[in-house]
Simulated assay, not measured.
Amino acid sequence: MAQYQSIANDIRNQIIRGDYQQGDQLPIQTELATQYATSRVTIQKALDLLQIEGVIYGKKGVGTFVTEQFSLYDNAVQDYMGLTKHYAQLGTIESKLISFEVRFPR
């Protein structure tokens, strides 16, 4: 696992544990870089990953914050098991192939 992924996992776990509450501001990137003994670029990659997941959001010139809507239920990214298993209790999920064709580039 890449270092930025490990850092993202650690920050995500801190949010889940309640070390950072919804709406809380995370430390600035230079502080996080010092804390994790890495570069600010690695921290930025970790924060970008968490932002893509919807766990945090950034405000230019202000800082990075924990998303207000983030909940443990939404944290399917960490323990992702697939949609079929996730919604299995609602009934069966089936796929149907409607058409199939091969298209070659021109």
Score class of each variant (00 low, 15 high):
Met1Lys: 13
Ala2Ile: 08
Gln3Phe: 14
Gln5Glu: 15
Gln5Ala: 07
Ser6Trp: 02
Ser6Phe: 08
Ile7Pro: 02
Ala8His: 00
Ala8Asp: 02
Ala8Lys: 00
Asn9Met: 04
Asp10Ile: 03
Arg12Cys: 02
Arg12Ser: 01
Ile15Ala: 04
Ile16Val: 11
Gly18Tyr: 08
Gly18Phe: 04
Gly23Val: 05
Gly23Gln: 08
Asp24Val: 00
Asp24Ala: 07
Gln25Asn: 08
Ile28Gln: 12
Ile28Asp: 14
Gln29Val: 03
Gln29Arg: 12
Gln29Met: 06
Gln29Pro: 08
Leu32Gly: 02
Thr38Met: 05
Thr38Asp: 08
Thr38Cys: 14
Ser39Asn: 06
Arg40Pro: 10
Val41Leu: 13
Val41Glu: 15
Gln44Glu: 14
Gln44Leu: 09
Ala46Ser: 15
Leu50Tyr: 01
Gln51Asp: 11
Ile52Ser: 07
Ile52Cys: 04
Gly54Leu: 04
Tyr57Phe: 14
Tyr57Asp: 03
Gly58Tyr: 00
Gly58Asp: 00
Val62Glu: 14
Thr64Glu: 01
Phe65Glu: 04
Val66Glu: 00
Val66Thr: 00
Val66His: 02
Glu68Trp: 11
Glu68Tyr: 12
Glu68Leu: 09
Gln69Trp: 12
Phe70Thr: 00
Ser71Met: 04
Leu72Asp: 12
Tyr73Lys: 14
Asp74His: 14
Ala76Leu: 11
Ala76Trp: 12
Ala76Glu: 12
Val77Pro: 10
Gln78Asn: 08
Gln78Trp: 09
Asp79His: 15
Met81Cys: 08
Met81Pro: 05
Gly82Ser: 11
Gly82Arg: 05
Gly82Leu: 02
Gly82Met: 05
Tyr87Met: 06
Tyr87Ile: 09
Tyr87Glu: 05
Ala88Glu: 15
Ala88Thr: 08
Gln89Thr: 13
Gln89Arg: 15
Gly91Cys: 01
Gly91Leu: 00
Ile93Glu: 14
Ser95Trp: 14
Ser95Asn: 11
Ser95Asp: 11
Lys96Glu: 15
Leu97Ser: 09
Ser99Ile: 07
Arg103Leu: 08
Phe104Asp: 08
Pro105Tyr: 05
